[in-house]
Protein backbone atom coordinates (compact mmCIF):
# COMPACT_ATOMS: atom_id res chain seq x y z
CA UNK A 1 0.00 0.00 0.00
CA UNK A 2 2.81 2.36 0.90
CA UNK A 3 4.56 1.24 -2.27
CA UNK A 4 1.46 2.08 -4.29
CA UNK A 5 1.27 5.49 -2.64
CA UNK A 6 4.95 6.14 -3.40
CA UNK A 7 4.54 4.94 -6.98
CA UNK A 8 1.60 7.26 -7.60
CA UNK A 9 3.55 10.09 -6.04
CA UNK A 10 6.53 9.42 -8.32
CA UNK A 11 4.29 9.10 -11.37
CA UNK A 12 2.54 12.33 -10.48
CA UNK A 13 5.77 14.29 -10.24
CA UNK A 14 7.57 12.78 -13.23
CA UNK A 15 7.25 14.08 -16.77
CA UNK A 16 3.71 13.85 -18.08
CA UNK A 17 2.31 13.33 -14.63
CA UNK A 18 0.40 16.56 -14.70
CA UNK A 19 1.95 17.84 -11.50
CA UNK A 20 1.76 21.62 -11.42
CA UNK A 21 -1.07 21.83 -13.93
CA UNK A 22 -3.59 22.15 -11.12
CA UNK A 23 -1.43 24.81 -9.49
CA UNK A 24 -1.14 26.78 -12.71
CA UNK A 25 -4.88 26.52 -13.21
CA UNK A 26 -5.48 27.80 -9.68
CA UNK A 27 -3.16 30.74 -10.33
CA UNK A 28 -4.81 31.66 -13.62
CA UNK A 29 -8.27 31.40 -12.15
CA UNK A 30 -7.37 33.75 -9.31
CA UNK A 31 -5.75 36.20 -11.73
CA UNK A 32 -8.81 36.17 -13.97
CA UNK A 33 -11.33 36.94 -11.25
CA UNK A 34 -10.35 40.62 -10.74
CA UNK A 35 -10.61 41.14 -14.50
CA UNK A 36 -14.17 39.90 -14.27
CA UNK A 37 -15.38 41.64 -11.13
CA UNK A 38 -13.25 44.79 -11.02
CA UNK A 39 -10.21 45.82 -9.02
CA UNK A 40 -11.68 47.50 -5.90
CA UNK A 41 -9.67 46.15 -2.95
CA UNK A 42 -12.59 46.15 -0.47
CA UNK A 43 -14.77 44.13 -2.80
CA UNK A 44 -11.96 41.70 -3.66
CA UNK A 45 -11.10 41.13 -0.02
CA UNK A 46 -14.75 40.39 0.66
CA UNK A 47 -15.01 37.70 -2.01
CA UNK A 48 -11.42 36.39 -1.65
CA UNK A 49 -12.28 33.43 0.64
CA UNK A 50 -14.93 32.23 -1.76
CA UNK A 51 -12.73 32.65 -4.82
CA UNK A 52 -9.84 30.79 -3.23
CA UNK A 53 -12.07 27.92 -2.13
CA UNK A 54 -13.90 27.61 -5.44
CA UNK A 55 -10.56 27.85 -7.24
CA UNK A 56 -9.04 25.10 -5.13
CA UNK A 57 -12.08 22.95 -5.76
CA UNK A 58 -11.90 23.37 -9.53
CA UNK A 59 -8.13 22.84 -9.61
CA UNK A 60 -8.68 19.62 -7.69
CA UNK A 61 -11.39 18.53 -10.10
CA UNK A 62 -9.05 18.97 -13.04
CA UNK A 63 -6.86 15.99 -12.23
CA UNK A 64 -9.45 13.65 -10.72
CA UNK A 65 -9.94 11.42 -13.75
CA UNK A 66 -6.23 10.56 -13.67
CA UNK A 67 -6.61 8.79 -10.34
CA UNK A 68 -7.87 5.55 -11.87
CA UNK A 69 -8.14 6.10 -15.62
CA UNK A 70 -4.46 5.57 -16.47
CA UNK A 71 -4.23 2.45 -14.32
CA UNK A 72 -7.43 1.19 -15.90
CA UNK A 73 -6.11 1.68 -19.42
CA UNK A 74 -2.72 0.01 -18.92
CA UNK A 75 -4.17 -2.94 -17.02
CA UNK A 76 -2.61 -2.11 -13.65
CA UNK A 77 -6.02 -1.88 -12.05
CA UNK A 78 -6.86 -5.48 -13.03
CA UNK A 79 -3.59 -6.61 -11.52
CA UNK A 80 -4.13 -4.60 -8.35
CA UNK A 81 -7.60 -6.12 -8.03
CA UNK A 82 -6.13 -9.64 -7.91
CA UNK A 83 -3.14 -8.59 -5.78
CA UNK A 84 -3.05 -9.39 -2.06
CA UNK A 85 -3.93 -5.82 -1.13
CA UNK A 86 -7.51 -4.78 -0.37
CA UNK A 87 -9.01 -2.62 -3.08
CA UNK A 88 -10.24 -0.27 -0.36
CA UNK A 89 -6.60 0.31 0.57
CA UNK A 90 -5.71 0.83 -3.07
CA UNK A 91 -8.33 3.55 -3.46
CA UNK A 92 -7.29 5.19 -0.21
CA UNK A 93 -3.61 5.15 -1.19
CA UNK A 94 -4.37 6.60 -4.60
CA UNK A 95 -6.66 9.29 -3.20
CA UNK A 96 -3.97 10.21 -0.68
CA UNK A 97 -1.37 10.43 -3.44
CA UNK A 98 -3.75 12.67 -5.37
CA UNK A 99 -4.05 14.91 -2.35
CA UNK A 100 -0.29 15.16 -1.86
CA UNK A 101 0.30 16.01 -5.53
CA UNK A 102 -2.72 18.32 -5.95
CA UNK A 103 -4.33 19.43 -2.71
CA UNK A 104 -1.24 20.04 -0.62
CA UNK A 105 0.44 22.36 -3.18
CA UNK A 106 -2.82 24.29 -3.36
CA UNK A 107 -2.77 24.75 0.40
CA UNK A 108 0.78 26.03 0.24
CA UNK A 109 0.24 28.46 -2.61
CA UNK A 110 -3.12 29.80 -1.39
CA UNK A 111 -1.62 32.47 0.94
CA UNK A 112 0.38 33.84 -1.99
CA UNK A 113 -2.75 34.12 -4.08
CA UNK A 114 -4.52 35.60 -1.07
CA UNK A 115 -2.20 38.59 -1.43
CA UNK A 116 -3.38 39.08 -5.01
CA UNK A 117 -6.98 39.14 -3.84
CA UNK A 118 -6.30 41.43 -0.89
CA UNK A 119 -7.34 38.77 1.63
CA UNK A 120 -7.70 40.42 5.07
CA UNK A 121 -4.79 39.81 7.46
CA UNK A 122 -6.45 37.62 10.11
CA UNK A 123 -7.90 35.35 7.42
CA UNK A 124 -4.56 33.91 6.26
CA UNK A 125 -4.15 31.37 9.02
CA UNK A 126 -7.78 30.28 8.64
CA UNK A 127 -7.33 30.03 4.88
CA UNK A 128 -4.41 27.64 5.25
CA UNK A 129 -6.06 25.73 8.06
CA UNK A 130 -9.41 25.27 6.30
CA UNK A 131 -7.78 24.24 3.02
CA UNK A 132 -5.44 21.83 4.79
CA UNK A 133 -8.40 20.23 6.56
CA UNK A 134 -10.82 20.40 3.63
CA UNK A 135 -8.79 19.41 0.56
CA UNK A 136 -8.34 15.75 1.62
CA UNK A 137 -12.14 15.49 1.50
CA UNK A 138 -12.04 16.87 -2.04
CA UNK A 139 -9.54 14.21 -3.11
CA UNK A 140 -11.41 11.33 -1.48
CA UNK A 141 -14.83 12.40 -2.79
CA UNK A 142 -13.19 12.86 -6.17
CA UNK A 143 -11.68 9.38 -6.03
CA UNK A 144 -15.16 8.01 -5.48
CA UNK A 145 -16.43 9.91 -8.53
CA UNK A 146 -13.44 8.74 -10.55
CA UNK A 147 -14.13 5.14 -9.54
CA UNK A 148 -17.72 5.48 -10.73
CA UNK A 149 -16.72 6.77 -14.16
CA UNK A 150 -13.50 4.84 -14.73
CA UNK A 151 -14.84 2.56 -17.46
CA UNK A 152 -16.33 5.36 -19.53
CA UNK A 153 -14.65 6.76 -22.59
CA UNK A 154 -15.57 10.38 -22.03
CA UNK A 155 -16.05 10.25 -18.30
CA UNK A 156 -14.43 13.60 -17.53
CA UNK A 157 -17.49 15.78 -17.94
CA UNK A 158 -19.76 13.28 -16.22
CA UNK A 159 -17.24 13.09 -13.40
CA UNK A 160 -17.61 16.84 -12.79
CA UNK A 161 -21.38 16.57 -12.86
CA UNK A 162 -21.30 13.79 -10.28
CA UNK A 163 -18.63 15.19 -8.01
CA UNK A 164 -19.46 18.90 -7.83
CA UNK A 165 -22.79 18.48 -5.99
CA UNK A 166 -20.98 16.26 -3.50
CA UNK A 167 -18.50 19.08 -2.89
CA UNK A 168 -21.20 21.47 -1.65
CA UNK A 169 -20.94 20.81 2.10
CA UNK A 170 -17.13 20.93 2.07
CA UNK A 171 -17.17 24.19 0.14
CA UNK A 172 -19.76 25.79 2.40
CA UNK A 173 -17.97 24.99 5.64
CA UNK A 174 -14.51 25.70 4.20
CA UNK A 175 -15.35 29.11 2.80
CA UNK A 176 -17.46 29.94 5.85
CA UNK A 177 -14.47 29.29 8.11
CA UNK A 178 -12.33 31.77 6.19
CA UNK A 179 -15.12 34.35 5.92
CA UNK A 180 -15.75 34.25 9.65
CA UNK A 181 -12.04 34.32 10.32
CA UNK A 182 -11.70 37.41 8.13
CA UNK A 183 -14.45 39.18 10.07
CA UNK A 184 -13.06 38.15 13.43
CA UNK A 185 -16.05 35.94 14.28
CA UNK A 186 -15.66 32.59 16.08
CA UNK A 187 -14.84 29.82 13.58
CA UNK A 188 -15.24 26.79 15.84
CA UNK A 189 -18.47 25.43 14.36
CA UNK A 190 -17.64 25.49 10.63
CA UNK A 191 -14.11 24.30 11.30
CA UNK A 192 -15.35 21.38 13.37
CA UNK A 193 -17.93 20.52 10.71
CA UNK A 194 -15.26 20.69 8.01
CA UNK A 195 -12.97 18.41 9.97
CA UNK A 196 -15.88 16.07 10.62
CA UNK A 197 -16.71 15.84 6.93
CA UNK A 198 -13.07 15.22 6.03
CA UNK A 199 -12.61 12.49 8.60
CA UNK A 200 -15.86 10.75 7.69
CA UNK A 201 -15.10 10.95 3.99
CA UNK A 202 -11.55 9.64 4.40
CA UNK A 203 -12.80 6.79 6.58
CA UNK A 204 -15.86 5.72 4.59
CA UNK A 205 -15.66 6.69 0.93
CA UNK A 206 -12.77 4.31 0.03
CA UNK A 207 -15.25 1.49 0.65
CA UNK A 208 -17.78 2.99 -1.75
CA UNK A 209 -15.03 3.73 -4.28
CA UNK A 210 -13.69 0.17 -4.07
CA UNK A 211 -17.20 -1.19 -4.58
CA UNK A 212 -17.59 0.98 -7.66
CA UNK A 213 -14.19 -0.15 -8.98
CA UNK A 214 -15.08 -3.82 -8.56
CA UNK A 215 -18.29 -3.24 -10.51
CA UNK A 216 -16.42 -1.42 -13.25
CA UNK A 217 -13.71 -4.06 -13.59
CA UNK A 218 -15.99 -6.98 -14.23
Amino acid sequence: MIRLFLRDLALGVRAGGGFGLGLAFFLILVVLVPFGVGPEPQFLSRIAPGILWVGALLACLLSLDRIFQLDFEDGSLDLLAVAPVPLEGVTAAKALAHWVTTGLPLVLIAPLLGVLLNLPGPAYSYMILSLAIGTPALSFIGAFGAALTVGLKRGGLLLSLLVLPLYVPTLIFGAETVRRGAEGLPVGTPLAMLAGISLAVVALLPFAAAAALRINLR
Binding site: P165, V168, P169, I172, F173, E176, T189, P190, M193, I197
Partner: peptide, 10 residues
Protein backbone atom coordinates in the same frame (compact mmCIF):
# COMPACT_ATOMS: atom_id res chain seq x y z
CA UNK B 1 -28.73 15.41 3.89
CA UNK B 2 -25.34 16.89 4.72
CA UNK B 3 -25.88 19.64 2.14
CA UNK B 4 -29.27 20.43 3.65
CA UNK B 5 -27.66 21.13 7.02
CA UNK B 6 -24.71 22.93 5.50
CA UNK B 7 -27.02 25.20 3.54
CA UNK B 8 -29.09 25.92 6.64
CA UNK B 9 -25.95 26.92 8.44
CA UNK B 10 -24.80 29.03 5.52
Amino acid sequence: VLSRYAVNFW
